[in-house]
């Protein structure tokens, strides 16, 4: 009970601090702008999916029926996934680096809170802020999908967005750990960005290597599991992989804070 109350207290404080931070608004604004542009471009531009289908139909060549909404979702969330990877380091960088620089870690570390509760509360806080970033995007999607004929079954976009949130949670969790290693926001952001790049490179290299490496890397690749969920392929192993990354990040954060206290000079 107190554990939940503690986690909630940290969660609340963390979420509040994002809504009070000018940087968070800049990040949110850029995210909304870019995701909006991508949305419009994918849907309505001369190279957009609607034109593409229209041209296909006009050319008279017989084509298999296309599920426009589904293909749009695949492309759109693919790009949003990449965009998220750029945004995450900016959101997670301050989680612990800021506390270390301000000396407020000393308050948290001398309060009756476990490192785990603090880490989990912080992760939930930043994840909640990320989810609020998605809301305007969801509105756009609702408008688009409402116009789709035949109607889009809700399970597919739901699963896709669940994937997006899980991807963000996993990256935020690792970013939180990297943030606990330094007092500098910038260094934390760079480290996290490098990690995101490494994960992307690992995924790419895995696809080039062929079997058995491809399969092995696909098993642990966040990007691969994200793609699966976006495509509507639900496999409980995906959930386990995301959960493992999230757990790993929280675990490493808790350990890193413990070690920090032992080394402190």
């Amino acid at each position: 009970m107190t554990l939940l109350a503690n986690i909630f207290a940290i969660f609340r404080k963390e979420l509040q601090s994002y809504f009070l931070s000018p940087l968070a608004y800049v990040v949110a604004g850029l995210f909304w702008l870019l995701s909006g542009i991508v949305f419009v471009y994918l849907l309505l531009s001369p190279n957009g999916i609607i034109q593409e289908v229209a041209i296909g139909e006009q050319s008279g060549i017989p084509m298999p029926p296309v599920d426009v909404a589904y293909i749009f979702l695949l492309r759109y969330l693919g790009i949003i996934g990449s965009l998220t990877s750029f945004v995450i380091p900016l959101l997670s960088m301050g989680l612990y680096a800021e506390e270390r620089r301000n000396g407020t870690l000393e308050l948290l570390a001398t309060s009756p809170l476990t490192n785990w509760a603090v880490a989990l509360g912080k992760l939930l806080g930043v994840l909640m802020f990320y989810i609020t970033l998605l809301i305007p995007m969801l509105v756009l999607e609702l408008v688009a999908f409402a116009a789709a004929d035949p109607p889009v079954p809700p399970a597919v976009p739901l699963l896709a967005h669940l994937g997006l949130i899980l991807l963000a949670a996993a990256l935020l969790s690792l970013g939180m750990f990297l943030s606990s290693l330094t007092q500098s926001n910038i260094i934390a952001a760079i480290l996290t960005f490098v990690l995101v790049l490494l994960l992307a490179i690992m995924d790419l290299v895995g696809r080039q290597l062929g079997q058995p490496f491809e399969g092995a890397i696909a098993h642990v690749s966040l990007i691969k599991h994200y793609e699966n969920l976006v495509q509507g392929i639900f496999d409980s192993s995906s959930l386990w992989v995301f959960a493992s990354y999230i757990f790993l990040g929280i675990f490493l954060t808790a350990q890193s804070i413990e070690i920090l206290r032992f080394q402190r000079s």
């Binding site: 870690l105 000393e106 948290l108 009756p112 809170l113």
Partner: peptide, 30 residues
């Protein structure tokens, strides 16, 4: 930790919180 109040050398303050909000937060985590 449940039985101590501790003021470190540099007061551990969150600059973006109000005094009232901060004290409520501390009361909560304590």
């Amino acid at each position: 930790r449940q039985r101590i109040g501790y003021l470190p050398e540099n007061p551990p303050l969150y600059n973006d919180m109000t005094v009232l909000g901060y004290l409520h937060f501390v009361a909560r985590i304590k």
